[in-house]
Design a protein around this nucleic acid. Structure first.
Lengths: 130, 130
DNA sequence: GTGTATTTGTTCGTATGTATT
DNA sequence: TAATACATACGAACAAATACA
């Protein structure tokens, strides 16, 4: 798994890691059950502190994307697992809220309902094509 | 314009204000050219500091939703105005990025492309129906 | 016009929490 | 754990604009 960080970005490093891990899971680059690099090794690869990687992993665990088994490391969680269904529902609700806020902002900028639907569909195609 | 803040929310107060002002502009509750309450009066209504309201207004100005004319107050900007077209384009690009990230996260949770499109369409209908 | 009081956004400093090393 | 840098939110004081007698 290759992660690229932008130190000058406004987005915190741990959120950049989170986003790219999610992208890797989505595209299948990281398979269900697969182990992620250790906090230490990834931090070393990225030339950042291990606390920062640890925070990213902790957030991903809280959101249901990862399972962390103490010293044996972090693994990609199975979305079908019963223990994860609840968290997936919470994230789906958060997604709906986000989509609503984006649609409202688009309307406030003078955009149309169709424009928003088209933009969403376009990004969906992008995200699901490999 | 009625704004409700949740002090215990994880979301900063100034972003809660931003979101609700955008919603008011989107639904037409705030018309183009209309004046917003002064930072002081709104801060007093909400029982928060004027700096927090001022920051919310400043962000909305930077994003192109408001025009601020010194001490004469803040006004709803016209999205059709040529000076605002550029900012609208920037926000549209940011929206596309956001949609892409949401779609990827949905896929990582085991969701389908159609599910995402449907969710987006549903929230679009919600946002554009009054 | 003049003087005063009120209202406005801005500038300064401070306290607390978060991000990162 | 400790230390640094930034973000969030607050309070006091300021100077420009406005209202009004």
């Amino acid at each position: 798994m290759i992660i690229r960080l932008e130190q000058s970005s406004e987005q915190p490093l741990y959120l950049q890691i989170r986003e790219q891990v999610i992208a890797a899971i989505a595209t299948g680059e990281l398979a269900v059950g697969e182990a992620l690099p250790s906090v230490r090794s990834l931090a070393c690869d990225l030339s950042i502190n291990l606390h920062t990687v640890n925070k990213a992993y902790a957030v991903l665990r809280d959101e249901g994307y990862l399972l962390m088994r103490g010293r044996s490391g972090a693994f990609v969680a199975d979305p079908e697992s019963h223990t994860m269904q609840g968290r997936g529902a919470v994230e789906d609700a958060r997604m709906a809220q986000e989509l609503y806020a984006l649609a409202l902002a688009h309307r406030a900028r003078g955009g149309s309902e169709t424009e928003f639907k088209d933009a969403a569909a376009q990004q969906a195609v992008r995200a699901f094509s490999e």
